[in-house]
């Protein structure tokens, strides 16, 4: 198209015309192109981790400053799964993150519904008290929490790892905001039918809360999977490490540099579930962040 127009226009113009077009195209595409380039550079470190994890360890002794594996192997992954505790840590993380997510969803949806819809004495005091909990950093509570779990003998157990996060009010905040925005008319019809609050919650409100629940689930799963301080304090036996604390325990030790491929394979193992979830549920995760931060 562009070539035909330029040939038909008189001699003096095509240069100017081309230049104008070029300027226009440059203006339109150069910023996007530059951003895309920057975004690819941004992801090089992650790419590098994947590349090294697929490179034979012997070759990494010679050179690690590579973007593509000179020779692809899965040996690093095989050795990680066969030797050491990484498989166990991965499983621990899976159990802990899933349990936390499930419990948080149930508990937050119920409480969120009560705060958004039900009237009960003390609500005006209780809700601010709960929301104030959003301000409290984990670091303030972890010493007393450590003592509580010590008393119940729950250290180095899965419940010891997943229970504390259930008390974090972020989910309640998200669900309350969500339920409060649903038009009342929908439940009023059911109320007229004499449905109990529990039935209204289960059969009307919960099915509508799908998007908010998904966002909350993804967000909780990611945060729990990546949690560092509490598992570091609570799970001190190597068998009970999560993949996050386990992987951390292998670092800072330069003997590991000789097994860089296997170390990077562990990093990949620790990231893949989250990266897969991220690719699938990107929108929900990002929405969860906006909701959870009090943005829109």
């Amino acid at each position: 198209m562009s070539s035909t127009t330029t040939t038909e226009v008189p001699r003096s113009d095509p240069a100017a015309d081309l230049r104008a077009r070029r300027v226009h195209l440059l203006r339109k595409h150069v910023p996007t192109g530059l951003l895309l380039l920057l975004a690819f550079i941004w992801l090089i470190p992650v790419w590098w981790m994947f590349s090294l994890s697929l490179t034979p360890n012997e070759l990494l002794q010679l050179n690690t400053q590579i973007l593509l594996p000179p020779q692809v192997t899965l040996d690093n992954f095989v050795s990680v799964i066969q030797v050491g505790l990484s498989g166990r840590w991965f499983l621990n993380s899976l159990i802990v993150a899933s349990s936390t997510t499930l419990l948080t969803l149930i508990v937050s949806a119920m409480a969120g519904y009560a705060f958004a819809r039900l009237k009960f004495p003390g609500k005006k005091i209780l809700f601010p008290v709960v929301i104030a909990g959003l301000m409290v950093p984990q670091e303030v509570m972890f010493i007393p929490l450590f003592l509580i779990f010590e008393q119940f003998g729950l250290h180095n157990t899965h419940p010891g790892l997943f229970l504390p996060r259930v008390g974090i009010p972020l989910g309640v905040f998200i669900m309350t905001t969500f339920f409060a925005a649903i038009p009342r008319e929908i439940e009023e019809a059911a109320e007229v039918d004499g449905a109990s609050k529990w039935r209204i919650f289960r059969q009307i409100m919960l099915p509508m809360a799908g998007p908010a629940l998904t966002a909350l689930a993804i967000f909780t799963f990611v945060l729990t999977w990546n949690d560092y301080l509490w598992p570091l304090v609570s799970a001190t036996e190597r068998e009970m490490f999560t993949i996050t604390t386990g992987l951390a325990s292998l670092q800072g030790n330069f003997a590991q540099a000789t097994e860089l491929g296997a170390l990077m394979a562990r990093g990949v193992l620790a990231s893949v579930p989250l990266l897969v979830m991220f690719v699938i549920f990107q929108r929900q995760l990002i929405r969860g962040i906006s909701l959870g931060s009090g943005g829109k």
């Binding site: 941004w42 990611v222 560092y228 996050t244 604390t245 992987l247 620790a270 995760l285």
Partner: peptide
């Protein structure tokens, strides 16, 4: 990168 854990 935000979804990666601190250890990664």
């Amino acid at each position: 990168p935000y979804v990666l854990s601190v250890a990664v």
